[in-house]
Amino acid sequence: MSALTNRLMLAAALALAAIYLFPLYWMYVTSLKTQSSIFAVPPEFLPGTPQWQNYVTIWELANIPRFMGNSLFIAVGVTAITGLFGAGCAYVLARYRNVWIDAALFTILMLQVLPPSLMVTPIFVGFSWAGLLEYPRIAAILAISAKTMPFFVILCRAAFMTVPRELEEAALVDGNSRAGAFFMIVLPLARNGILISALLVFMQGFGEYVYSASIIADNRLQPASIGMTNYLQPNQVNWNAIMAFAATYVTPILAAFVLLQRQIVNGLTAGALK
């Protein structure tokens, strides 16, 4: 490729990134503005004096610790369940090859296609029947895990497939049991891919909205994704409060992404090369 096309591609990529990232920027900027400057015409792209107290106010007013705590609880629960069951499932799918495995893989891929808004009604009815709605956060964790599971299994399977079978066999001959070989050889070698997949699942759990909104009715148990929408009232919207809330909510996720972006990309493309 010539240097010119290279540069054009780069420019296009930057333009797309700018379009994509502008809302994020706008969120941070708005969260620091005064109520009046939010609607200033022409719009102010830089806040005059940053209104840091927006954050302090919202922190106490909006019960942010409680909402974030609930989000964290759900995310951890989802990651634990998905990781525990998904890893074993992915390993089996990576190691055996036959018609049934192919059928299972196809089914898993199909499950990925079903949107939560479609699934939520049957899940709600089922959970209600089973009495699970008594424990709304647990119920939400189960529902979200069902959504993240296929995604995790597919990624994790790719990670396990990068571990050559002969290594496991060498461990068996060296004196390992099947389980021993899995924990001492396969798991450490697939670790990066698994951790990254788990991190992505965690983020999905942390930001999930549809299932939580339908299943968790009690305001005290709701995650931040729902807590935020409490500030969207029909008549008046407290924009800088919402934006400060949103910024508090997504900054940890963004930080994790930025810190781990190299590992994430490596983890996702593991096995694609070589």
Partner: peptide
């Protein structure tokens, strides 16, 4: 008997050294 109970040693074509 599973491999570990047979007390044999094997050298693989790919060597199968544990990379980690």
């Amino acid at each position: 008997l599973p491999p570990r109970k047979r007390d044999l040693a094997m050298v693989f074509q790919s060597y199968a050294l544990y990379p980690h």
